[in-house]
Design a protein around this nucleic acid. Structure first.
Lengths: 207, 207
DNA sequence: TATCTTATTGACCACATGATCAACAAGTGG
DNA sequence: CCACTTGTTGATCATGTGGTCAATAAGATA
């Protein structure tokens, strides 16, 4: 194997180092969870001394909070972009449900659940989590309102329906982490529930 | 203040020590979370050398899993006992919702959420979590069936309704840990949703 | 009272964490 | 080409973790 040779220090601009740190933190949190996000893990990943990482962040708590926000905001942006392709509101929400519950996002789900757990005793992180939850709730509610304006959905309280759906996403996601009822039924259940809430036929939510 | 004097070793039966360890572990997990449940914390709480605690448990992972099960099973038993006083099924389920969401169980909720997070990478714990979730799901479904048999509820799929309700409990609980929408509206939302699922008037679920 | 089983101690080990800081050197500006 | 700014290193600190084990002594037994 390739000898790690001489470390050969390289000198980069603070901005680039900051980007490297953020990127490494993101990858580590997704692969190992927020509890695997350590000073030394970040340093090792970008091939740098632990002290350098410490030099670029106020504290590990800050890095954890920032990384949480980074990952979770990215997830929402990705999903919003994904469903934007669907022509009608029912299709968009249906795809939202499918995407969130398809089981292919365990990494992000773990970050969410750890965010709630760590946030219980870390106010700075809790504030970050709340911001991202607001964003999710808003995005869902917006989609519902759009559907209502298009006449596709009934006129239930969009805010309440969005909250309800988000609670189910979060609950089912957490349950799935331990593989409890972690099967396609999750999607079926949620689709049925949501169809009831929006006063549409469940089939309408299929793509 | 009282000098901690000479430790003065006391000799107890293995059974009693085991009970002490389990009790201390339970108290620590509720006060500090599962991540605060350390060998030394348990030892300090029962006033004993760390090595003694290690002597009585196979490993900390086992103690954590056992403590999770202990706490969570106790919670369910307590709630089942509490609602047993209500005469009709609607009152029992209404009280169940109130009790679970009244915000007075943050300690147990944290244990649940940490169970999901830690269970994602700890199979033994995950198995424990699944067992307790089965018990909860079963208890809720049983109550629903009882109500249906008494003619109080409609004849929806009790299993699906129980799952749906449990997902909401879990999701709302997790959200509440970071104080997101952690207000009485949670109960109102859930009651309204559940009334729809059971095909009854929301007022029926009030006590 | 003397003996002996065994519950208990406390000193370890190996490892991990976040954080600090003097010393070093890369690369730019003079 | 030299000097100097500053990004970077690596050793070090104080703590924390789970776990092991020979030595000790409490308290039941004879």
């Amino acid at each position: 194997m390739t000898q790690a040779s001489r470390p050969q220090r390289v000198r980069k601009s603070p901005d680039e180092r900051r980007r490297e740190v953020a990127a490494a933190a993101r990858e580590i949190a997704l692969a190992e969870g927020l509890d695997g996000l350590t000073l030394r893990a970040v340093a090792a990943r970008i091939g740098v001394a632990p002290g350098l990482v410490a030099h670029y962040i106020p504290s590990m708590d800050d890095l954890v909070a920032d990384t949480f926000g980074d990952i979770v905001a990215g997830e929402l942006a990705g999903i919003v972009e994904l469903i934007a392709g669907e022509p009608d509101a029912a299709g968009r929400i249906g795809m939202l449900v499918d995407t969130v519950l398809d089981g292919g996002r365990r990494d992000v789900t773990l970050v969410w659940v750890q965010g709630w757990a760590l946030g219980a005793r870390n106010d700075a992180l809790a504030a970050r989590v709340r911001i991202e939850m607001d964003a999710w709730q808003q995005a869902i509610a917006d989609e519902i309102v759009r559907g209502q304006q298009a006449g596709a959905f009934g006129h239930e309280d969009a805010d309440a329906v969005a909250w309800h759906l988000l609670a189910m996403f979060d609950g089912l996601g957490a349950q799935g982490l331990v593989r409890w009822r972690d099967d396609p039924d999750r999607t079926a259940l949620t689709r049925r529930v949501l169809a009831g809430l929006l006063d549409v036929d469940p089939a309408v939510l299929e793509r």
